[in-house]
Design a binder for these strands. Sequence first.
DNA 1: GATATTCAATAGTAATACTATTATATTTGC
DNA 2: GCAAATATAATAGTATTACTATTGAATATC
Lengths: 225, 225
Amino acid sequence: MSSFESKIQFKISETVYLKNPDSSELGIKIISGSIDLLDLLGFENFTFKKLALHIQSTEASVYRYFESKHQLLSYLASWYWEWTEYRIHFGTANIESAEEKLKKSIQILTEPVQIDESFSHINEVKLNQILNREFSKLYLNVHVDKDNEEGYFIPFKSVVSRVSDFVLEINPDFKYPHMLISTIIEGAHHQRFFAEHLPRLTNTIEGEDAVTQFYSELVFKTIPA
Amino acid sequence: MSSFESKIQFKISETVYLKNPDSSELGIKIISGSIDLLDLLGFENFTFKKLALHIQSTEASVYRYFESKHQLLSYLASWYWEWTEYRIHFGTANIESAEEKLKKSIQILTEPVQIDESFSHINEVKLNQILNREFSKLYLNVHVDKDNEEGYFIPFKSVVSRVSDFVLEINPDFKYPHMLISTIIEGAHHQRFFAEHLPRLTNTIEGEDAVTQFYSELVFKTIPA
DNA sequence: GATATTCAATAGTAATACTATTATATTTGC
DNA sequence: GCAAATATAATAGTATTACTATTGAATATC
């Protein structure tokens, strides 16, 4: 099984695809094409037919790789959280102070992402926008327990767990580390969305990244005993 | 236009229905039946056909009241936030201290709801569960700007604004009141969901309402200058 | 008591999500 | 090196969903 184009690759759970999209040119086109279209149309209006048209393939061929559009989005989310954990891992390497590691992690989790040249077929900026708007739909449904058993949320839980450990380094008695970190990750997603569409639900400050600033202050004020 | 059953009624925007469901027996059945079915099936699996079967009517008759299932959910959400603002209004009446008013508001916003006998056709416990899981889907989509123009989110913004004012009473210089309150409202919804389905994303503590406890601490530690 | 309006039912349509089958490549075993 | 096995993606479907057009019956109005 050859790897196409990229040097670094994340091991994505076999439960989130039927055929590994990293293993063929069509698979690569499905991933990059779905990022374009999900960003443009949103999850509800996205269909495999539209995707097939966009990448000049057929609906049935896409179904060889993913059994549903939900599974395809789950694949993209898994990739995103693997990539995020990788960035946190390297972004906090060689840092001694738990405070500094946490501060860096919050930045990575709440700032808008930059393009990463290591993965030529993935547009990380669009993928981040997709996750801001669509990620919660992957768990806010009635088949969440089945998906959870299949391991769909392992990469996300892993990120939450890693950053929670920095919180516990600072205050080992803090009672709500997972609640705090999952709150700020999804909170930041939604606040970015509010800033664009429902500004009265958020606060924007000229010349300042209010979202990252707010969640940093919130975390560091909340943790101490 | 007669009002059925209830003594108190909320004025719901005419943009979230075609025909006021409060004005007929069928309308009442549509509301109570959709609360049952949305709770049971989730928004994605809920259809007007299933609802019609459940209340022994027809699909087309339901379409006389709501132009889509999205609009029906928007109606339920509007009712919920009107009811929530009403509870905050009366729950904080005659309280002097801004801290106490805020504390009470956080309780109302983050605790699981109790049944309210004033509205016989609405099961508030089920409606709360529906909102926990489905509310964010009302804005996390590509037609959010159109819905926002139509006023779909006014009751929610109003709740956020009212509670944000208590925050500003405590610290008039606090820069992120709306961000703080919208974060805790949606955060609490999702943490309740996590506790049931994805426990590793949250923290539960024996004999304690960890969600309300966490968000209270978070707010009161974050606000001071 | 005729006219207008409201009402919900029947019977649709267009689009969506997904599947069964098959011809054509490609790989593998000997 | 060639047949058997496997992988590939295309064609052509089906079932379900979301929504609409039309109509006869009931109710209100003048």
